[in-house]
Every structure is written in C-alpha cells, then in structure tokens.
Design a protein around this nucleic acid. Structure first.
Lengths: 193, 193
DNA sequence: AAAAATACGGAACAATCGTTCCTGAATTAA
DNA sequence: TTAATTCAGGAACGATTGTTCCGTATTTTT
C-alpha cells in the first residue's frame, strides 16, 4: 500500500540529539534540523510532529541510552566503588576529548527548559529519581560487599554522587580542559565512599 | 546641555538580570526587555548597545554582586567552616524560597552560552578562577585555624566545594523542592572538610 | 496494471526576531 | 532664549522563526 521511509527514524533521532545537545533547544532552528538530519521539512514534521516533540523524543532517547549504560555497568559490577570510579573517569574523558564541549544533554536541558516546559520537567525529574535509585542500590551493594564505607546512609551518598556528576558536567560545558580539576573533584568525592 | 536620564542605569541592569536569569538569553526577547525594564526601545539601545552587550553587562554585575558577598563573608569569618556552611544554607534557602526557580545566573549562562559566545566564556572562566582562589584561601585559613581537616590539599577541597555548589544550583533549576535532598548533599560535603 | 499511500523537495505562510530610525516633547547648560 | 541632549513611543526594517501546504515522485498492495 505505502511507500517505506528512506531514512532510519532512530538514526535521525541520534542526529537530533547531537545538534540539540550542542546548541540547546532555543539555539537550534528548524533549518538547523533540516540540514543536520538530512531530511526535508515535510518528512521531519510528518515524522516527529513539531520541534518541541522532536526535542522531547531526543531527550528521552538520550536518557534511555545513558541510563541503560550506567545500570548495566553497576548491575554487572563486582566492585561497585571501582565501577563508579570508572563511570566518572569515563565522563572526564568525554569532557576532555569532545572538541565541541557539549556537557550532558540532560543537565543542559534541565537548566534551559525544565522550568519553562512541563514535559521536559517531567523527563528531568524522572531521570533524577531513577538515577538516585540506581546509585542508592549500587551504594548499598558496595556497602554490603565491604567496598564502600557504611558511615553514611546509602541514599545520602547517592544524592552526593549525583550532585558531583552534575557539577562535573557543568564544568565540561564551560569548556574546562584542565584534567587536574576534574581529577581533584573525583579524588575528593571518592575519599568519603 | 543635556537632559538627564530619568532612569537609574544600575536599577535597569538589575531588572535585566532578573529577566535574563529567569528566561535565559535566547528565551528573552527584545520586547521582554522593553516591558520588564520599563524603558523605550530607543533608550534601551542607546544606553546598553544591543542585547548581547546588555546581557554581558548584566552577568558582570551579577558576578560582582555575588562574589563580593561571598568574599566579604569569608574574609570577616572567624570560623571558615561554619561560614561556608552558612553560604550553602543560604543557597538552599534561596533555592526553596524562590517561587520561580532561577538557579544561579552564572551556571545558567555557562550552560547556555559559554561555548557559543567568547565574551561570556571569558566571564565564566574568570568567575571560576576567582571562586577557586577565594575558596582555596578560605580553606587554607580554616586549616590553619584548625577548623578544617588538613588531610586534603586546600585547592582540591576548593574545587570540590565549588563543584557541589554548581550541582546544587542545577538541582534548584530543575525545580527540586525537597529540602532533604539539599541537606543530604551538604551533609556529605561537610563530612570531609 | 491500477490504485492507494506516503516520502520528498521546496515554495510559502504569518509571526516574531533584533535592530534602526523618526517624531515631538522635555530638560539642561550656556 | 538658544542650543544641545535625551527622553518616550511607535513605525518600520529585513531577516529568521516554526510551521503548513502542495505538486510530484516513488513504492507497495490489490
């Protein structure tokens, strides 16, 4: 009956993530999207609705991708403290390697849109809660195994870890390229785990 | 020779800070500025140049205001650890009280503009360096006085403090209203000082 | 082969963007 | 008083915004 799409929807979403991540919501124009996604205006609007909906779908996809990665690493980990350390090391590498410093798409979107767009606010809130749960369970696992100090409540540590993660991603967004600054923060953070 | 200005330039800048802080640079239109500052278009452009210049001036004024406050508190402090604690408590109060959650103007601007506007990038970088110095000296002072542990290098702790400050301001921007979340972070942070 | 459905490219939309300019009134210093 | 300067207000600028629509091409199912 119908013609098939010539582009892959998920690949297009990945392109949308790239440009929204780099330029933000208000900084990305419809023309930017057409150019970067390689689609026509009509295909773009037929497929994704409008700019706001495309942004929300992009952010959801990004969230799922990054959450899944962290969850998998922590689930499979036999030393949670080491794995958490690896996660931070990876974030630092990404911050230093990216020639265009994009920071974290979720953090960027929180700051730019959370208070102006209810749908984005929900995604951000859901992300925070999920990450808090993931980190809390991981810390508990580490405390049981004896890799992480039991001196502080697991949820407190989880919130603390998440807060430092946000901070580091802001730092990356500012264009900080001195590895020592990142390393100092991680060093201090892990001194209390 | 000339008619005197009927408005106070600094007061107008304060109004500009308010709206840029709330809506961001791209989210604030020229009409928003005219309405909120209570000036005519012509007066606004004659006085401040253009939107970008007005934004930069606003951010500089905000930076000076908040830096001066922190520096004064820490300079006059006899117990730096307590004063740092007060500074965080104050940030939490502001985060919870603000009906419209604005976060931190400097953090917001970093995320939105630092990588796209060189002038803003310079302001942000200068702010980070200054705050790092201020915190470093404060921590040294606290270590000498015996209020802060000497186990960790002062600069490392300073960067760590600043990172958690950024994180908390992002949290505020996401609209988090649970005081316990903020308190947990501060509790964990001060457990290593 | 015919018919149905959709992708495509691009023209075109009204609205808003930041900015400039013009008007006439108001105020000041010479 | 005169000349200079700045005020407020609004019209108007071209450019860009997000979005819609249309004609054509293409593919799939009947």
């Amino acid at each position: 009956m119908a013609r098939t799409k010539e582009f892959n929807e998920d690949q297009a979403l990945d392109k949308a993530i790239e440009i929204f991540w780099h330029k933000g919501y208000n900084g990305t124009s419809a023309q930017d999207l057409v150019t970067h996604l390689g689609l026509s205006r009509s295909s773009l609007y037929d497929t994704f609705g409008d700019k706001q909906k495309l942004f929300a779908q992009s952010l959801l996809r990004y969230q799922k991708q990054s959450q899944d990665q962290v969850i998998k690493l922590l689930d499979e980990s036999e030393n949670v403290k080491e794995t958490l350390h690896d996660i931070f090391k990876q974030a630092i590498i990404e911050s230093l390697e990216d020639r265009i410093t994009k920071g974290c798409f979720m953090v960027n979107s929180s700051v730019e849109l959370a208070m102006h767009d209810e749908e984005i606010a929900k995604i951000v809130k859901n992300n925070s809660q999920t990450m808090e749960e993931v980190f809390t369970k991981a810390v508990q696992k580490g405390q049981t195994a004896g890799h992480i100090s039991k001196a502080t409540d697991a949820r407190v540590l989880a919130r603390f870890i998440f807060n430092n993660y946000s901070g580091i991603r802001v730092l990356a967004r500012t264009g900080e390229r001195d590895k020592q600054v990142y390393d100092d923060i991680v060093k201090a953070l892990f001194s209390i785990l």
